[in-house]
């Protein structure tokens, strides 16, 4: 069902690609712009990590919205297929 939906949507997804190819077929090659403005080496120094109490509230909220957790605070997800 989900897959059929994807197939149907896929066709309309490609429409704009066709129009793109059409619009740019005679356009000369250019450099690519990945960022709106360019900068390099924006780094931050290593330093003391955040404190445990600063993270405590987040942990509580994080575990509260997780679909499934165990009593230790792990997130519970599916078992890997290849282990079976």
């Amino acid at each position: 069902m989900a897959e059929r939906r994807e197939d149907e949507v896929e066709l309309s997804a490609e429409e704009i690609i066709k129009s793109f190819v059409e619009a740019t077929k005679d356009m000369p090659s250019e450099v690519e712009t990945y960022y709106s403005h360019e900068a390099y080496n924006v780094l931050r120094p290593d330093g003391e990590p955040s404190s445990e109490e600063a993270r405590r509230d987040f942990r509580r909220r994080f575990l509260a919205i997780a679909p499934s957790t165990d009593e230790d605070g792990n997130i519970r997800v599916e078992v890997a297929r290849w282990t079976r």
Binding site: I17, F20, T24, M27, S29, E30, V31, E32, T33, Y34
Partner: peptide, 14 residues
């Protein structure tokens, strides 16, 4: 063909 080409158009428009 598509993604990088689109980024080239971005250069042009900009």
């Amino acid at each position: 063909k598509y993604y990088q080409r689109a980024l080239q158009v971005r250069t042009l428009i900009r």
